[in-house]
Design a protein around this nucleic acid. Structure first.
Lengths: 302, 302
DNA sequence: AAAATAGTGTCTGTCAGACAGTATATC
DNA sequence: GATATACTGTCTGACAGACACTATTTT
């Protein structure tokens, strides 16, 4: 804050006698869902391009509670930093990567969500390109791993009558680690109720296999918000791409985030004004090589 | 959380010896921007419809810091409640209104934002219909008042070259109280920088007249997010409407939120499937009365 | 030639923007 | 009849979805 706030003598006295510790206070944490698009699975055919997957970074907990379960990277907020800075710091500590997309994506403070006590979790979403992210490869020594994200939605209930409506969806979240075959999973229900002319949304964890705390709920929430955001603002998806990329890999990133297939011709027509062709090509195998493109920053801010 | 988490003996011991108070903790507050659409100004011509304005509820501070300045309603989070519940409780205490649109709209925890110490503010956005909101009218006795919201944007800088871009906008926020003529105002700059292929947005308060803390920044942020959200998801704007409304008043609500004029014929065509005609009419003056409509809830959840 | 990806051209229906026009109340 | 709001019809251009088509590389 840059503007100057001048204090009276009286106010100075009031503040000096103000005891902020008189009230109960929570611990505040920043948890980060770090997403990236990476190659996934075996490349069994030399001609075929590698399959791509949306990947999430999870960390194995070394201590109680939820010892040996996997959790989102995160940590507690310190008095000398903004929550945003906490997230940035944790992100760097876990990935050695700086300058990536980072946005606040919600707050989770339900009573009893952490057995250690009153802990409020600020959730952040970070997006980074797979090349940068892969530099700190996941080895057995390092307790952080990239998991392929799978999300399936099943409709449980859908009722709309007169002035009220109720929708229940069950999401099956599965997180798979490529090399070890390790698999984390969860079922989370989404309850949408429309009553008194207002919508109330609530999530409930039904099952949670090896995922710590309420992080399955948090991951679901982040994935759904990202998807919704990307529908209208496609600048976001570019944050998953390296400096130069093929139009095919950009399309794959969109498809993974939006969770639907796109028609190539239409996608290219729409995206064309946001990219600039470079003189480079990607030589990827037994077929015609594709041109590399970069962002057209000026169009982003037309 | 409904699933059961079973603890080992070892874990129980760990948790019993865990001292959460060993670390510094912040106070966590929920501040709410409560918006509503109400009639505004004198009705000088009996034929003309009342002018409408977007109104924000502000509270005059009785104590230091920022004594006699105006602030967003809010309060501290208690250990037995979710931050969301804090917001709902505060909302009810200030307005006597329940069951309205309420959503988390950001977190403000900059170091030094509150002279009392380390206080993190969770910002919520609440929307309610003007009829409900006006029930607790603003009297002189009550220190809460509805202010008409004015927001003007001026472009300070716009540079995009090669791989980086910089945009600076200055927003002039003015809050006017109809009866007393009381006026609060602020100038807040928005810095958008695009570097290393990622966007960073930052707000800075340049002036703040009678608005407490960093609330001018918070209000700006809430208004801009609401506007952006309403562009694509127009369910939100309906939360500003009573059970029955004229299409004209709905259009005015959209225009106030989106801050742009809409063409009536096009607006009606677009909105028609989301409303149902009722048998009632609004008799408003020396001209053809308009039909009253209600929400078509089933279409909201098609 | 076969296989695979790269990339283009065009038809079609929908929909938003613009605007002119008609309808119906009260004073 | 004047005034003000209520409400409708239709032209236009842009654009998204669908899909058939051509191009280019390696094995």
């Amino acid at each position: 804050m840059s503007f100057v706030y001048t204090m009276s003598e009286e106010e100075r006295e009031y503040l000096d006698s103000y005891d902020i510790t008189a009230f109960d206070r929570p611990s505040v944490a920043a948890d980060i869902a770090i997403l990236s698009v990476m190659d996934h699975g075996e490349r069994n055919n030399f001609r075929k391009l590698p399959r791509k997957a949306l990947k999430l970074l999870m960390i194995k907990r070394a201590t109680y509670p939820y010892k040996d379960c996997w959790a989102l990277p995160g940590g507690f907020c310190r008095p000398d930093e903004d929550v945003y800075e906490t997230a940035k710091r944790e992100l760097y500590e876990e990935t050695n990567v700086e300058n990536v997309y980072l946005s606040h994506a919600g707050i989770f403070g339900e009573v009893g969500r952490d057995p250690r006590g009153w802990i409020i979790s600020n959730t952040f979403l970070a997006l980074m390109d797979g090349e940068k992210a892969a530099l700190r490869a996941d080895t057995d020594a390092w307790e952080a791993k990239w998991f392929s994200v799978g999300l399936v939605c099943r409709e449980i209930k859908k009722e709309a009558s007169g002035d009220s409506a109720e929708l229940v969806n069950e999401y099956e979240l599965s997180l798979e680690h490529d090399l070890s075959g390790l698999c984390l999973s969860a079922k989370v229900r989404e309850y949408k109720e429309y009553r008194d002319y207002h919508e109330v949304v609530r999530y409930e964890i039904m099952e949670s296999e090896n995922i710590a705390f309420d992080h399955a709920k948090i991951i679901l929430h982040v994935l759904l918000s990202l998807r919704k955001n990307a529908e209208t603002d496609f600048k976001t998806v570019f944050d998953l791409m390296p400096e130069m990329f093929t139009l095919n890999s950009l399309q794959k990133a969109f498809e993974l985030v939006l969770d639907k297939e796109l028609l190539t011709a239409n996608f290219r027509r729409k995206i064309m004004e946001y990219v600039i062709e470079t003189d480079f090509v990607a030589e990827t195998g037994g077929h015609r090589p594709s041109k590399l493109f970069k962002r057209n920053v000026e169009r982003f801010y037309k």
